[in-house]
């Protein structure tokens, strides 16, 4: 895809970042974000998620590479590019002595937008902050401060919203409110890029997933495709009589004996046409192995994520 493709809202090519101490935080990142999608960027701590977001938003200079945001080069045409982006940072950086209203008014002005009290009121009401508009930020709870940061990021009506670990340290209610708001924003056409440690949230929210580890983007995939491709299913059979070892006749299946010999676990690939379950059950019956219960389970995005970041890069190619 090329940078001028209207379906793309962010186009990242060959981005590298080496910090002054010599640490290479990002290695040749190439990434396309589609207009109107929710994209989740996953990766362990220190993988380079925040560095990548900071470079796209203009907070950190890239060592090399090109980034285009909504058709504007983020270096050459930084004004137009930055005007389209809103950022909710990971840390609760706020102006403690300012009131909620003053701080969001400041954000709107800073991003070059004419005052619009009605719009700002709507943003505050959506985030349940309207009653707190005259309160100094220092008097707010952590969750409320997070809402203020979201309001600041939305104050200039961005078309791209970055949420860097938005649910860290946030209670369940706010998390639900926030995800409801994210869905509403997406419905209005805003593209959302988020990083999160709660992988079930990414599983629930995202259209596509990118996994970054040690500065390299190792996977970018549609969430459902990723889950299908890399997901595993397991069938667990609880036995009537415990076993000490797996009978030789069952060696054709990759079986594991668990729970002190009380259960057999069969792992299979969801993409295979033949899962081998029917044959396994026949063979068990032929060997007079009886079971009292059976259940199947599917790997979560979290299992996939953990296996992805722990396997060597070659294995993914």
């Amino acid at each position: 895809m090329t940078a001028d493709n209207p379906a793309l809202i962010i186009y990242v090519r060959g981005v590298n970042k080496t910090y002054a101490g010599g640490f290479q935080a990002l290695k040749n990142i190439n990434l396309d974000i589609k207009r109107g999608e929710i994209f989740a960027l996953l990766g362990p701590n220190g993988a380079g998620k925040t560095t990548l977001i900071s470079i796209i938003c203009g907070i950190v200079n890239a060592t090399s590479g090109t980034i285009v945001a909504d058709g504007h080069d983020t270096v050459r045409d930084y004004r137009a590019a930055r005007a389209t982006i809103g950022l909710v940072p990971q840390e609760l950086h706020t102006d403690s002595f300012e009131s909620v209203w003053a701080t969001i008014k400041f954000s709107r002005g800073l991003f070059g937008k004419a005052p619009n009290a009605a719009y700002l009121e709507k943003v505050l009401r959506n985030l349940s902050l309207w009653d707190k508009r005259d309160v100094k930020i220092m008097a707010l709870s952590g969750g409320m401060k997070r809402r203020v940061l979201i309001a600041k990021a939305l104050a200039h009506e961005p078309t791209i919203l970055f949420l860097d670990e938005p649910s860290a340290g946030v209670d369940v209610e706010l998390r639900h409110d926030m995800w409801r708001m994210v869905r509403e924003l997406r419905a209005q056409g805003t593209t959302i890029i988020l990083t999160t440690h709660y992988i079930e949230e990414a599983e629930d929210m995202a259209d596509r997933i990118g996994v970054i580890t040690k500065g390299e983007l190792i996977v970018v995939e549609d969430k459902n495709v990723l889950m299908r491709k890399l997901g595993k299913k397991q069938l667990t059979l609880t036995l009537r009589q415990p076993m000490t070892s797996i009978p030789a006749g069952l060696s054709a299946w990759s079986l594991e004996l668990t729970d002190d010999g009380h259960a057999l676990v069969y792992s299979f690939d969801t993409q295979e046409d033949e899962t081998g379950i029917a044959e396994l059950l026949h063979t068990l019956s032929d060997h007079s192995i009886e079971f009292k219960d059976l259940r199947s389970s599917e790997s979560s995005l979290e299992d996939i994520f953990v296996s992805l970041v722990h396997q060597p890069k070659e294995a993914l190619e």
Partner: peptide, 17 residues
């Protein structure tokens, strides 16, 4: 102050020269 408090992120990400 914004450097110390971390709020400088907003200034750096804003379309201001």
């Amino acid at each position: 102050m914004p450097r110390w408090a971390g709020t400088i992120y907003e200034l750096l990400s804003a379309p201001v020269s």
